[in-house]
């Protein structure tokens, strides 16, 4: 009986159906279609931004077996660098030209992403490399690095909240009937989707991607086949850090006002996504991020006091059902 149910569940999409099921339950509880659409789009946009931050961490966990508690520093730096670039290009941001609006945003995201990649390279070489294969020291040294990074941000940008100007073309909402959808949320969702498609292509259609997938399963065997896994580690760490910074930049635009706590606040959700998605799995990260994004928005509307606890409960429920997450990388 259980086997038949399980086979039927898998045939209709398996765990990929969970966001649909969550959305349907929320629809019944919310009652008003326009509110439900607004919350669903907000949840998807939030999920995609969390996916940007979480996917790199998941690969770093899965491939390198590194517990990087400093990952949120890249989120914070990405947010503050993007805010500074947007402030510097203020005339482009607020001007009437849609091309300049988008160019300003792209420059902000590119600067954040490039900084993330370079800082990721330095972080891996100086801080992470000496503590491979030692989880306790990894936790201690990456948390120490996080504190130092937060202090650097505090020194450079100060402790007061910083406004993040949003490009004029992405302000406002699209109104269809009584449904109102923020344009920035649509943009965030589409950008996240593009990054996911690019990552999926890179992992499944390129030789480097093949090596990363193999390395997540068995690093030693990848070396025995003649590949230098340490070079792959650097590339993955840089990519993961760059994605975190990109996510931070997008999140800064979404929030409109950022503080030095931005990285730490997001890391709770990022860790939940990585754990419920399954280590080393990009599909798992996407699924986990969408579930977390939807859950956060639905619960914040339905039961505001349960907002923070809801994703913890989601994580516990999923881990009780699937201890290795929803879509972990296959091993062996």
């Amino acid at each position: 009986m259980m086997k038949t149910l399980s086979a039927t569940f898998e045939r209709f999409g398996g765990v990929m159906l969970l966001p649909v099921a969550l959305a349907l339950i929320a629809f019944l509880l919310i009652g008003r279609p326009s509110t439900w659409v607004t919350l669903t789009v907000a949840g998807l946009a939030m999920g995609m931004m969390i996916f940007l931050m979480a996917s790199g961490l998941s690969l770093i966990f899965g491939l390198m077996d590194v517990l990087n508690f400093g990952h949120s520093a890249f989120v914070s730096f990405g947010a503050f660098i993007a805010a500074s670039v947007l402030a510097f290009l203020g005339a482009w941001v607020s001007g009437g030209s849609a091309v300049l609006n988008i160019a300003a945003l792209m420059a902000a995201i590119a600067a954040a992403t490039a900084f993330g990649a370079l800082a990721g390279w330095a972080f891996e070489r100086v801080i992470v490399k000496p503590v491979y294969k030692d989880h306790l020291r990894q936790i201690l040294i990456t948390m120490g690095a996080l504190i130092v990074a937060d202090e650097i941000i505090l020194t450079l940008w100060g402790g007061a909240p910083i406004p993040v100007p949003r490009p004029a073309v992405l302000t406002g909402s699209i109104v269809v009937g009584d449904v109102s959808i923020e344009i920035y949320r649509i943009f965030a969702f589409l950008l996240g989707l593009c990054v996911y498609v690019a990552m999926h292509f890179a992992l499944n259609r390129t030789r480097i991607g093949l090596l990363v997938r193999a390395g997540v399963e068995n690093r030693e065997m990848v070396e025995a086949l003649g590949f230098r896994i340490d070079r792959l580690f650097i590339a993955v760490f840089m990519a993961g850090s760059a994605l975190a910074a990109m996510g931070g930049a997008m999140w800064a635009g979404y929030q409109s006002l950022i503080t030095t706590a931005i990285g730490a606040e997001m890391m709770i959700l990022v860790f939940i996504v990585v754990i419920i998605g399954g280590l080393g799995s990009i599909e798992g990260s996407l699924l986990g991020a969408i579930l977390v994004g939807l859950m956060a928005n639905y619960v914040a509307f339905l039961f505001p006091k349960m907002s923070l606890a809801s994703n913890m409960i989601l994580m516990m429920a999923i881990l009780l059902w699937r201890p290795f997450g929803l879509k972990p990388a296959v091993k062996g």
């Binding site: 093949l210 997938r213 068995n218 065997m221 086949l225 091993k331």
Partner: peptide, 16 residues
């Protein structure tokens, strides 16, 4: 333990 990559196809294992 054979060291095969279970999440990869037979072709991908060989291609590596």
């Amino acid at each position: 333990n054979m060291g095969i990559f279970g999440g990869l196809t037979v072709e991908e294992n060989m291609r590596l």
